[in-house]
Every structure is written in C-alpha cells, then in structure tokens.
Design a protein around this nucleic acid. Structure first.
Length: 267
DNA sequence: ATGCCTAACTAAGTTAGA
C-alpha cells in the first residue's frame, strides 16, 4: 500500500505531470494540494481514465485539496477543519480509503511575517492540533499528509541564512509542528531517514533545484496503529526535474503488514 | 532589504506562493 502527497501547484497547468506521475509511480492513495481551480474545473474525467476515484475541494486561484484512490472512490468524512466558521480557504479534506482515514491538508504559508497572514497560519495550526488530538486518540489508522509549510528543524533546509525571517521556520511554526508530533504521530519521512538531508520543495528562484537548495515541508504523519506498518518512505525527485514542474516533489510511504517482534521474525 | 521564477486572472499589471 503506497500513499503519497503532492503539492501540484495548479491542477490545470500540471495535469500532464500528474497523470505521468500516477502512471509511473501508481500510488494507491494520492493527496493533492494547491489545485488553484474551482470545483467545476477539476479534471475528474482524466483522473478516472487513469484509474482513480477522487474527492476534491477547490477554490478559485488559490488553495484547493483532493484525495485520489486507485480503483476506488474515497469516502469523504470531512472537508474543512472544525471551528472554521469564517474560514473560506479550501485547505483540508479527509476520506476513508481501504480501512484508513486519510487527512489531506494544505497549511497556510504565513508570509509575510509578522502580520495577519502569519496569525492566520498559527490559528489554523492550532485548529489542526486540536482536531489531530481527537484523531490520534481515536486509535484508528490515520495518515495526515500534505504541505505543512513548516521546516521542522535546521536539518530540513539547505541553509537558513536567507530564510531567517520566513514564516516556515519561525519558532512559533516549529513549536506547533513539534506539539503536533508530541501527540504521538510518526513523521514517516524523517523516521525512515533520520540522518539524511531530504527535501520536498525547491523554489523557482535562482538555481535552487539544480543546486539542491531545498526545504522539507511536505510531511506524512502516521497514527500509532500505522507506524509499525511503515516499510519505506521517499521523495519522487524525478518529478521536480520535468519541464514545467511544480516546485514541490511528491512524498510517498509504503505500508505493509504489522511487523512482528524481532524475536519472532529472526531467521 | 528586495528580487529572483511561475502561474492565475485577465488582458499589462497585480497578487500569491514559500
């Protein structure tokens, strides 16, 4: 079971890239962010033709999230986080797929910082933390995947020098992410590659892709039930190298059967 | 301190991304 998350930065301009990625990597579940399109513009026919069912929550110009499932229709369980009466942004969608709950999120960027956009980021993060606590406590198998717009530590960025004032690595942003993990979630990519510089985003400026000057901001968090089933995690870097690529690359995890104890599986 | 590059929206210039 392969689950992935991909900030595609525009579903209209990136549809060929999305279809090529789906064909080549064939994730069982794909979370998408930054559709940048209204609901009616979502290319459901092309996605169905590629063998995927989907749910989506679009928005004109910005934001927008979707969940795709290979050979299945995701069963929508929520759109929008609790407590968002005045929140018009399409940033969270959730579905049951194959016995798991998949939460697909696009956390606010928060720049410029300080300012109202940063306040919105932190407020949204607080809502996520509160809701994630109930998800984790439920004991159900849950994956929280998406663009968190947080660089968790200085090991998750090529160089902090020109990013010191950026919303993505402010102590407040990092503290929120740390507090989320403290609930018990497993950061799948980091736990699989504890000592590796590993990035999921390279901006279009200068030659940041060519020089591998990236950030790790797309994350996949696993509930207690799923963490023992983690078999691998990685980044589909080839996607970022394509012409007219998104500035993000897909992140994936592979889940298997729950691992037996070391003693039981030895030899 | 700001722009770099890219895309959406809409018709050349602004806004947002991170």
């Amino acid at each position: 079971m392969k689950i992935a998350t991909f900030n595609i930065n525009g579903i209209k301009s990136r549809l060929p890239a999305l279809l090529e990625w789906l064909e080549r990597e064939a994730p069982d579940v794909a979370c998408l962010q930054e559709l940048k399109a209204q609901d009616a513009a979502f290319p459901i026919d092309a996605i169905r033709a590629a063998g995927y069912g989907a749910i989506w929550h679009g928005q004109q110009s910005w934001n927008g999230v979707a969940i795709l499932a290979k050979g299945a229709d995701p069963l929508e369980s929520r759109r929008g986080l609790p407590g968002g009466k005045d929140d018009t942004h399409s940033r969270y969608i959730e579905a049951a797929v194959d016995g798991m709950l998949i939460g697909c999120l696009y956390l606010p960027n928060g720049n410029p910082q300080p300012g109202p956009k940063f306040d919105y980021k932190l407020a949204w993060f607080e809502r996520l933390i509160e809701y994630a606590a109930t998800l984790f406590a439920s004991g159900h198998p849950v994956v929280l995947a998406g663009d968190f717009n947080v660089i968790p530590t200085d090991e998750d960025i090529y160089n902090t020098r020109s990013w010191k004032k950026d919303a993505l690595l402010q102590p407040e942003s990092r503290e929120c992410y740390a507090r989320l993990l403290e609930q018990g979630w497993t950061d799948a990519l980091r736990s699989t590659h504890p000592d590796e510089r590993i990035y999921t985003f390279w901006d279009y400026f200068r030659e940041h892709w060519k020089t591998n000057s990236g950030l790790r901001i797309d994350h996949m968090l696993l509930s207690a039930d799923l963490a023992p089933k983690l078999r691998g995690a990685g980044v589909d870097r080839w996607v970022r190298d394509q012409p007219h690529a998104s500035d993000h690359a897909p992140v994936w995890i592979e889940l298997g059967a729950k691992r037996r104890s070391r003693a039981a599986k030895k030899n």
